[in-house]
Design a binder for these strands. Structure first.
Length: 185
DNA sequence: CCTGTGATCGTCT
DNA sequence: GACGATCACAGGT
């Protein structure tokens, strides 16, 4: 079942775990999401924490759209916007559709490394700033409700502020995670 | 397997 | 002027 806007018009803390096991395609390329993180507007690690700016404007727009930002001046990262200036960072997926296209964009063949990490995932799916703000229920996006998978929770990756919050969700036993899930305390 | 480091630049202080 | 919601690669274990 294809996910509609009302799926995202909820608390990011309800939406994020439900996205593990969902299928994400961009122009028919992608796979099953295996790892995400939640960021809400009262979260010091969130881009929306200090209010609306030009960069984070999409996080303050309607739920059900993409928020794409550039990381470390090099990589792109894809978020799905939820209610209240919050978003889910899509951190890894298990490639299932058009591995050939992803391998070509990434310059590698190994399936395990095609989309294990937010920067790698964006590159594999062809995500750039051009997709920032686009609705998720229309082309080029297709997002389908999750299969029944076991989800585990841990601390988020790569942040210094509020790093202990247990807002990272991953599929139990997946070989396609960016890193193993670590407990938050 | 694990740790350390350079790359690279827009955004906010 | 400092600092990232990161990645690839080198080197040691």
């Amino acid at each position: 079942m294809r996910l509609r806007k009302d799926f995202f018009a909820r608390s990011v803390h309800d939406v994020a775990p439900e996205l593990v096991g969902a299928t994400l395609l961009v122009d028919g390329v992608g796979g099953r999401i295996v790892e995400v993180e939640a960021y809400d507007h009262e979260d010091p690690a969130a881009h929306s924490y200090r209010g609306k700016t030009e960069r984070n404007a999409s996080m303050f727009g309607p739920p059900g759209r993409a928020y794409v930002y550039r990381s470390y001046g090099i990589h792109w990262c894809l978020n799905l916007v939820c209610e209240d200036a919050s978003a889910v960072l899509i951190r890894a997926l298990e490639p299932t559709h058009r591995l050939d296209v992803m391998a070509s964009r990434r310059g590698i063949a190994e399936p395990r490394l095609l989309a294990a990490g937010p920067g790698r995932l964006a590159q594999a799916l062809g995500i750039t700033g051009e997709q920032d703000g686009l609705p998720l229920d229309r082309a080029p996006f297709e997002i389908y409700a999750r299969e029944d998978v076991d989800v585990e929770v841990g601390r988020r990756v790569g942040i210094t502020k509020a790093a202990e919050r247990p807002w990272r969700y991953g599929e139990v036993g997946s070989k396609f995670l960016s890193r193993p899930i670590r407990p938050s305390y």
